[in-house]
């Protein structure tokens, strides 16, 4: 009897853990969907913004003891600032050059995270990030933290859904399909792209902030390239530009490798195996959709 109760209690903890992960990835993937799916900007530095958000929260809450709102807003601002900087540098480039430029930029960020030891403690990471507390309500327990994460994810999804449907989103889609036509229609394409970049990155910063709070510990290895591949897989599987498609694929892909956990697989193999599964899925979906994923620009 007690074993049964223990199973349910521990099982519940496990589902709460998955719920929190889904909330974080919903924010991360849907914001990537805004820049990649809607605006057709292939920004490989999205995870760098996520990392900066996480580090901003970690540093502010441990070294300076700041509260939840200060930390999350600071995280979003830092990531938005990164987007402004990167936008000024890289949005002048096109297509594959842009991809390489953002890749190089995110590599610079991860080199800084690893080597700026006096600030980030390098590969050792930052431990002891306290869970937040808002107005006497504490979010120490995972169950409470799930509520917070779900609230944040819901708010993000609502804002992004409004943006997808608003004239802003339609203009963004238009400039992604044909820059020339949109310019002729008086759409300020450069400004729109920059803005989408900033919005996407600041939400990535929010996701990073939640991640740091949830994990209590962050190190540079959580923000490596395979994380970018994972986010890309979510958006490509959910169909870029489709709001609910990406919501669905986030649930699907976060839960997909979980059955592996119950098999007798050593953890040293489990990590690479997850990466390989995601990469294989990404390749399969890209292969099937190869004529639709990056349409050749229509010529008039």
């Amino acid at each position: 009897m007690s074993a049964l109760i223990e199973f349910f209690v521990r099982g519940q903890e496990y589902f709460i853990h998955l719920g929190i992960l889904i909330c974080i990835y919903l924010i991360l993937a849907q914001s990537f969907n805004l820049s990649f799916g809607v605006a057709r900007i292939f920004n490989l530095a999205h995870v760098a913004a996520y990392a900066l958000g996480a580090y901003a929260t970690a540093l502010l809450s441990t070294d300076y003891g700041r509260g939840f709102f200060v930390c999350t807003i600071a995280s979003m601002c830092v990531s938005a600032l990164l987007a402004v900087l990167l936008g000024a540098i890289a949005l002048r480039l096109t297509q594959d050059y842009f991809a390489i430029g953002t890749l190089a930029f995110s590599a610079v960020i991860s080199a800084l995270l690893i080597n700026w030891k006096s600030l980030t403690r390098g590969v050792l990471g930052i431990p002891g990030i306290p869970r937040p507390e808002i107005l006497d309500i504490d979010f120490y327990a995972n169950r409470n933290f799930l509520m917070l994460a779900a609230l944040m994810a819901l708010a993000t999804l609502i804002i992004l859904h409004r943006l997808f449907r608003a004239s802003y989103g339609r203009q963004l889609r238009a400039q992604g399909e044909s820059e020339l036509v949109s310019l002729a229609l008086g759409i300020p394409t450069r400004m729109l792209r920059n803005l989408s970049f900033v919005i996407a990155s600041s939400f990535a910063g929010l996701a990073g902030s939640l991640f740091a709070y949830y994990m209590n510990y962050i190190d540079p290895s959580s923000f490596a390239l395979h994380e970018m591949v994972f986010v890309l897989t979510i958006v490509v599987v959910g169909r870029p530009g489709s709001f609910f498609g990406v919501v669905g694929s986030t649930f699907l892909l976060v839960l997909l490798p979980e059955p592996l956990r119950f098999m007798e697989i050593p953890s040293s193999i489990l990590g690479p195996m997850r990466q390989m599964i995601y990469a294989l899925i990404l390749f399969a979906v890209v292969y099937v959709n190869r004529y639709r994923l990056f349409p050749v620009q229509r010529t008039v």
């Binding site: 297509q95 890309l232 690479p272 390989m276 990404l282 190869r290 990056f294």
Partner: peptide
């Protein structure tokens, strides 16, 4: 013959596949 970003994405997955295979 398709969009230039497509091979970039597929070789990105190829790199991940090779890396994780070797790690496994």
């Amino acid at each position: 013959t398709l969009h230039p970003l497509l091979p970039f994405v597929t070789t990105l997955t190829l790199g991940t596949i090779l890396e994780s295979a070797v790690a496994m």
